[in-house]
Computed example of a mutant assay.
Amino acid sequence: AAKVGNMGSEEHKEMLFWTKEEYKKFSFEMMDKPVSFYAFEMLYWCGIREGELLALTTADFDFEKETVRINKSYQRLHGEDVITTPKTKKSNRMIKMPKFLCEEMQEYLSMLYGLKKKDRIFTVTKSYLHHEMDRGANAAGVKRIRIHDLRHSHISLLIDMGFSAVAIADRVGHESIDITYQYAHLFPSKQTEMADRLDDLGKGEVENVS
């Protein structure tokens, strides 16, 4: 533990993310390999973790309601596929997908023949995804980020769109306090607005006194 150091602060310091434009350039380069393209679409537009992506089955999707259920995580341990419960209690969640992503995932599932409802739909390895990340970033001419940074990218996109920490935390399976703390530098500062409104109130008080 002494060698590794404080992991929490390290992750905070190293947080990288792609803008929507950078991700679009990257995803264009992924189109030659459908499994890679659709996997990265899920990671970026839903902000799910890598293990959550690799555990997904057909049964997790409800295209009528436009949702994907996150209730398990996948990892490879000692040469065996292991499905575990998600990272935390909050990680159990239902994510509403954008309509275009529902269409894309229906396209992808229609390519997988003889698939049973409980079969995993992304049977690639984590090292495959990391290799594809390298390939796509190089081809697109965008900075190389980690797979987990796609989750940061999703969260920063939602902050940029004006959603609250509470709403974002609900979507990505975090505690809202963690979102507030980890991404504080991305939330627009409300200090000026606060001061201006206090100024208006104060001025009104002064005028009333005189």
Rank of each mutant, 00 (worst) to 15 (best):
L53V: 08
L53D: 07
L53M: 14
L54V: 13
L54F: 15
L54P: 06
A55V: 11
A55P: 08
L56M: 12
L56I: 10
L56K: 05
L56P: 02
T57N: 15
T57S: 15
T58D: 04
T58V: 13
T58A: 15
T58G: 11
A59P: 00
A59Q: 09
A59L: 11
A59T: 05
D60R: 08
D60G: 12
F61C: 02
F61E: 03
F61M: 03
D62L: 12
F63D: 02
F63K: 02
E64M: 10
E64I: 12
K65S: 07
K65N: 07
K65Q: 14
E66R: 12
T67M: 12
T67C: 02
R69S: 04
R69Q: 10
R69I: 11
R69P: 00
R69H: 13
I70P: 02
I70C: 00
I70Q: 00
N71H: 09
K72Y: 01
K72I: 00
K72M: 00
K72E: 14
K72W: 06
K72D: 08
S73M: 15
S73I: 13
S73P: 01
S73G: 07
Y74T: 04
Y74Q: 09
Y74A: 04
Y74K: 08
Q75R: 14
Q75I: 13
Q75H: 11
Q75L: 08
Q75F: 11
L77W: 04
L77S: 04
L77F: 13
L77Q: 14
H78C: 01
H78K: 15
H78E: 02
H78R: 10
H78M: 03
E80V: 13
E80F: 13
E80G: 01
V82E: 03
V82C: 13
I83H: 02
I83C: 03
I83Y: 08
I83P: 04
T84V: 05
T84C: 03
T85M: 01
T85E: 04
P86V: 01
P86K: 03
P86I: 03
P86F: 06
K87I: 08
K87L: 05
T88A: 12
K89T: 07
K89D: 11
K89I: 07
K90H: 00
K90M: 00
S91N: 12
S91I: 15
N92I: 04
N92V: 06
R93V: 02
R93T: 01
R93I: 01
M94H: 10
M94I: 11
M94G: 09
I95V: 15
I95N: 02
I95M: 07
I95L: 07
K96L: 05
K96H: 05
K96P: 00
K96Y: 09
M97L: 15
P98S: 08
P98E: 10
P98A: 09
P98H: 14
P98F: 13
P98L: 07
K99H: 10
K99C: 02
F100P: 12
F100W: 13
F100C: 11
F100K: 12
L101P: 06
L101I: 04
L101E: 03
C102H: 12
C102E: 10
E104V: 00
E104W: 15
M105S: 10
M105G: 13
M105W: 15
Q106F: 01
Q106N: 14
Q106A: 15
Q106I: 12
Q106V: 14
Q106T: 14
Q106S: 11
E107A: 11
E107P: 09
Y108H: 14
Y108T: 05
